[in-house]
């Protein structure tokens, strides 16, 4: 008669902490986060599989290719832990089932995760804290540090624990519920507005072109553009770069183009 093997909250947290630290420690082209995934499962595996061969098989199944966004993707680890617990208690879950769940979820969660963490939260926090710093205030970088650690750690831990508690249902809620769309849409409005705010501060381009009209000097910036819409040049430049980004011109190529454009217009006295 076998007694049930159960994990304590502490085991699940120990496992989380390894991922929290070392998710990208051995990031590589061949299997991306494979060793980090298996590393994070060690506390759970050692608790669930006292038999050495079982433990070895469990580690081996988690050394396969794995790549996701480490914050939001943490829900996958939670689900995997729940599955390992069931398997250790006799449910016939095959290695293929583990792999199916992991590879099936890592793509969609990488998409959502990258959008949320790298595309929305970080740029908005950066824009605000860059703005604070620019007022000669050192609170900028300090607030940024505290806010980012709080936000990212909270999301990751919530994902991990929900994955463990609710299993696949946790992902269905994330992927199919309207909540995530609402959050992304609201944050996108905030983000685009703040990006516009940065334009004024960091793209202070004003044309130096002026003509003599009779005896009056006509200054293109002060006499025409500022009357139409101040900030027209920075706005136009950003929109042109945006359309090139959307056409698939690589960022590195665009950097080169902008450096060349800045050099030419600077030498010609346009700016």
């Amino acid at each position: 008669m076998q007694t049930a093997k159960t994990l304590t909250k502490n085991d699940v947290l120990k496992s989380w902490f390894r991922w929290y630290m070392f998710a990208q420690s051995n990031y590589n082209y061949e299997r991306m986060q494979a060793t980090a995934f298996a590393h994070s499962m060690l506390p759970v595996i050692e608790k669930l599989y006292p038999d050495k061969e079982d433990a070895k098989a469990a580690v081996q199944r988690h050394l396969s290719f794995f790549n996701t966004e480490p914050i939001c993707g943490a829900v996958i680890h939670g689900i995997t832990i729940a599955m390992e617990e069931e398997k250790a208690n006799g449910k016939p879950i095959t290695d293929g089932a583990f792999n199916g769940i992991k590879t099936g979820l890592m793509g969609p969660l990488a998409g959502i995760g990258d959008t949320l963490t790298q595309g929305i939260i970080t740029p908005i926090m950066l824009a605000i804290c860059i703005g604070i710093t620019n007022n000669q205030n050192l609170a900028g970088p300090i607030i940024f540090l505290i806010a980012q650690f709080t936000i990212m750690t909270t999301i990751q831990l919530t994902m991990w624990m929900n994955g463990y508690t609710y299993g696949k249902k946790a992902v269905e809620q994330i992927l199919e519920g309207g909540m995530i769309n609402k959050v992304i849409e609201g944050a996108s409005i905030l983000g685009t507005l703040v990006m516009g705010g940065l334009v004024g501060r960091f793209i202070p381009l004003q044309t130096l072109i002026s003509f003599d009209v009779g005896q009056v000097k006509f200054n293109l910036q002060a006499d025409l553009l500022d009357k139409l819409m101040p900030g027209l040049i920075p706005l136009a430049l950003t929109l042109i770069v945006l359309s090139m980004v959307k056409k698939g011109v690589s960022p590195i190529k665009l950097m080169g183009i902008l450096i060349a454009l800045g050099a030419v217009t600077g030498i010609l006295g346009i700016f």
Binding site: G191, V199, I203, P204, L237, L242, P251
Partner: peptide, 16 residues
Amino acid sequence: AMLPALGIAMNLKLIG
């Protein structure tokens, strides 16, 4: 003064 246009545009590609 021109380079920030790239950083802002890259982000707008995602959220704009």
